[in-house]
Simulated assay, not measured.
Amino acid sequence: MDASTVTVEDLDSLAVRLAEVESYLHLEEKRERVAELERKSAEPGFWDDAEAARSLMAELSRDRDDVQSVEHARESLADARAALELAEEMGGDEELLKEAASTVAQLTHAVDEMELSSWFTGKFDHGDAIVTIKPGQGGLEAQDWTFMLFKMYMKYCARRGWKVTVNDCPAAEVIGIDRATFTVEGKDAFGMLRAEAGVHRLVRISPTDDKKRRQTTFAGVEVIPVLPDDIDIEIASDDIRVDVYHASGPGGQGVNTTDSAVRVTHLPTGIVVTCQNERSQIQNKAACMQILKARLYELELQKREEELDQIRGPKHAIGFGNQIRSYVLYPYQMVKDLRSGVETGNVEAVLEDGDLDPFIIGYHRWATGNADYTPSESDAE
């Protein structure tokens, strides 16, 4: 932020936004809840029920983080005001103005993050996520596009500081990958990433076409939550078939020399889950079962309450007319989200550096009614 542009009005605007965040987060209630949970955690026998104790400690950690984040923001806002006032008293001191600008920039980012988190009211929004990417229309090009998206999300998760476990990412025969499934652990991972669920469209000059013609390809992204420990999905051993095979990674290289990759088929539903990241069959089977349980839970929600749209959005064919976002590399360069209207001409920052926050934050602002946007016919082109 340019030091010369920081004004009292900027600080007043941030103060208003911060007050709204406090209201969204019910901060006073959370302070009381933190005190209550701290008392409980200190009681004798608290850890006798380990599962219940872990759940309460996780709640304590989330609530404490929210309280501390707002309190730190309040302190930063006061520091920025003091620096700006002192700079004016000293006739526009450049160093103090730079200090105020730096504080305001950091504070704006912090308020953005808190505001975003306050919108996450779903049961699983603050938890971890399982992401699956599959090729759609476009043949070999779609498999390459799937790999490009996979690398983009790896970069985005790294930017966010999230832990990623790649469960399955087999190479395609010619180019790209057949699919990718990975688990993301971190603050608000599911809430953030559910913005990515849907069909992603790529327009570019085909790298496999000798005539260098323009090609449109598609890939589908599915995002489901990792189920917390207090949700137990029972799966009868007779209902699953477990197959093992040799693991391989992107580009065709062998992951290891043993038959450690695992494919679990749920016979009643036909759901198939494969995992090959771990070194042993036992670990890969455990990862498969975690993903299978999450998908069965999602299926049960759909059957009982028809709430699938709240978990991952409506299910569409991975092709023309269903895309949520377009990535155009030729004849011009642009990435545009067709729901929120957020767009950028810096395609490299998105695909190569994983700079997805403007799109994800823009989607959630749009989805929660904080932006007025109606897709036009030109957006679908």
Rank of each mutant, 00 (worst) to 15 (best):
V244N: 08
F320M: 09
I291G: 01
P250L: 04
G251C: 05
Q283H: 10
Q215M: 12
K336Q: 00
E307K: 15
H316T: 11
Y297W: 15
E298H: 13
R263D: 02
R312G: 04
S248Y: 06
G341H: 05
A219N: 11
L301I: 10
G254T: 10
Y297D: 07
A261F: 07
K212W: 04
L329G: 02
K336A: 11
L292T: 05
E234G: 08
T265S: 08
L296E: 02
N256C: 05
E222W: 10
V242Q: 00
V223M: 08
E298K: 12
Q290K: 15
Y330H: 15
I240M: 06
P250S: 03
Q333A: 09
V242T: 01
V272A: 04
P225G: 02
Q281V: 13
G254S: 10
I240L: 04
V223C: 03
E298N: 08
S280T: 15
Q333E: 10
N256G: 05
D230K: 14
L267C: 11
I324Q: 00
S248K: 09
E234L: 11
G220K: 04
A294I: 13
E222I: 09
R295Q: 03
D230M: 07
D309Y: 14
E306A: 15
P268Y: 07
I324H: 02
S260Y: 00
A287N: 14
Q323L: 11
S260N: 00
I240A: 01
P228I: 04
L267S: 10
E278G: 05
G270H: 07
A261T: 03
T269P: 06
R241Y: 00
S340T: 07
G345R: 13
G254R: 15
R214N: 05
F320D: 14
M334D: 13
